[in-house]
């Protein structure tokens, strides 16, 4: 049976939402490491850092229907940091867009699950991404589309922190405030690392909060692994009028697996057989 997800009124019972979502995040992490291990390539670090935000979005915050992926009234999600695809695919599969077994075909020839998201191949993927810095502009276009059609859908866009070194992000940041797209909510996966090292050493981003504030955004900062804080932030964003919101989610790259946490090595490297075994053990065993 396919289930349509409505925007839940989790506000009234946050604790219960958090206890429902927590085991889902554990299962998601298992699938992410399994599928990247099977693919023998991919980006575990920046996938694992996004799990709580994606789970909150797809299980509680967004209005969507896995049985009707192109439903015109659905809330949209753009994974601007396209290399986080394993986390998105896992969330979509667990929600019912396709079978979780298909996750094991990641990056294989002929698979619907490309290394980076492709909207014409994978049900539930709202935009093709991969070349960094482009998703926020897309999300603005979607948000303006809603306004023109007098529809009430909302648009979510996840950015990587290294990604905001791209100039187009700031063109889009300016435009989103100019057009007052308050149906747009960006999430910054602030995991502090990019391929070549810590973001602050490569090309410093701080202070991110005041940069977006100065561009005219509503800015919220949360612990990106704390479901309660994440849910509260999305609720706050939905109540903001006249400006876009960005949630700076402070996260840990490789979150949930001890030897991947904060590790540069696992930005873009698959776990070995032994590493997979250890990861699954830390997560409480294989997928259910």
């Amino acid at each position: 049976m396919l289930l349509a997800f409505d925007r839940n009124d989790y506000w009234s019972d946050l604790e219960s939402s958090v206890s429902t979502l927590t085991p889902i995040t554990v299962e998601a992490r298992k699938w992410i490491v399994k599928m990247i291990h099977a693919a023998r390539s991919g980006h575990p670090g920046g996938s694992l850092s996004t799990v709580e935000v994606l789970t909150a979005l797809y299980y509680e915050v967004m209005r969507h229907d896995p049985g009707n992926p192109t439903w015109s009234d659905r809330d949209r999600f753009v994974l601007s940091k396209g290399h986080g695809a394993p986390a998105l695919y896992t969330t979509l599969a667990m929600c019912g867009y396709f079978e979780t077994e298909e996750l094991m075909t990641l990056r294989q020839l002929g698979s619907r699950l490309q290394g980076h998201p492709s909207m014409n191949k994978t049900p539930g993927v709202d935009m093709s991404t991969g070349s960094l810095g482009q998703g926020l502009s897309i999300a603005i276009g979607m948000a303006l589309g809603a306004r023109l059609d007098r529809k009430d859908y909302r648009v979510y866009c996840m950015l990587g922190d290294g990604e905001i070194q791209e100039g187009q992000i700031w063109e889009a940041a300016m435009a989103a405030a100019h057009y007052k797209v308050d149906n747009l909510c960006a999430i910054l996966d602030r995991n502090q690392l990019q391929i070549d090292g810590p973001t602050e050493n490569i090309m410093s981003l701080s202070p991110i909060y005041s940069k977006f504030k100065a561009f005219g955004w509503h800015v919220i900062e949360v612990n990106g692994h704390d479901l309660k804080e994440i849910l509260m932030a999305f609720k706050e964003a939905s109540r903001i009028h006249g400006k876009p919101t960005i949630i700076i989610a402070n996260t840990v790259k490789g979150k949930g697996i001890s030897f991947m946490e904060g590790s540069l090595k696992f930005h873009g490297k698959a776990p070995s057989d032994e590493e997979l075994e250890q990861a699954l053990e830390e997560l409480g065993g294989d997928v259910r």
């Binding site: 709202d126 935009m127 502009s137 603005i140 276009g141 979607m142 948000a143 303006l144 023109l148 063109e171």
Partner: peptide
């Protein structure tokens, strides 16, 4: 209402165009 001058920002213009196109424009 249907015209957007994004300023001197061609990359952003192409991106916003793509986003609008996903909504049937």
């Amino acid at each position: 209402e249907r015209f957007f001058n994004v300023g001197i920002a061609e990359q952003n213009m192409m991106g916003i165009s793509a986003g609008l196109a996903t909504t049937g424009k």
